[in-house]
Amino acid sequence: MPVRGTARLRVESLSAGREVATITGVTLEVAQGEVVGLAGLEGAGQRVLLRALAGQIPTTAGRVTLDGRDVTADGYRARMAAGVHHLPADRIGEGLVPGLTITEHIALTAEQSGAAIDWAAAERDAAERIERFSVRGTPDSVPESLSGGNQQRLLLALMPPQPSLVLMEHPTRGLDVESAAWVWRQLLARREDGTAFVFASADLDELMTYCDRILVCFSGRIIGEVDAATTSVAELGLLIGGVTA
């Protein structure tokens, strides 16, 4: 069983974003090892919420605490250092750098010291992670030559070993069933260490299968919360459409 300790993430009356892409007054709490899904129509606020939590969009009001520490004012890199990891929906545009090989991605994300890169070590590391994450490629492969599933595997391979909070946008969109199941096995294995997950998905089955709780976004607010184990597609569908009664 995953660790269910104290609150990993606490969000109080959070508002963020600009113009139409905003969220208003979002309050939520995520425990260690918990998986929380965000359901809603495209543009209902899931993406803005995830990015505000990742520190990529400045908050305009409210408070975000991570493991009891106030991180509201922290930007993306500070939150990254605090253990927040963000997996964007756009794997090539935002997740991986086109033209850089897998080895170069490893070297870019590795916590090595010193100005010079140890390419031999980076290549060994790349080969090892390619094997462990079953990426169909070589250390010299560039991400644009990989399939969507293998790009997602590479993104998982680049994840730090023990993130405290993983924020994901459509983690398995475009993947075949087998790849999707594999990705989730990899992710959920990290719950043992207390890693918490918040993810947005348009796939209701995915939400109901892998979440503990599902929060439904509508028009930049969270209008409902359901238990993933007991909810139905019909109940979720109505909430997504904004029907709360």
Binding site: Y76, E94, V97, E104
Partner: peptide, 13 residues
């Protein structure tokens, strides 16, 4: 190089 080839991805990494 990462900045030049994919600024958004480099920033995310």
């Amino acid at each position: 190089r990462a900045t030049g080839q994919g600024r958004a991805a480099a920033a995310r990494l």
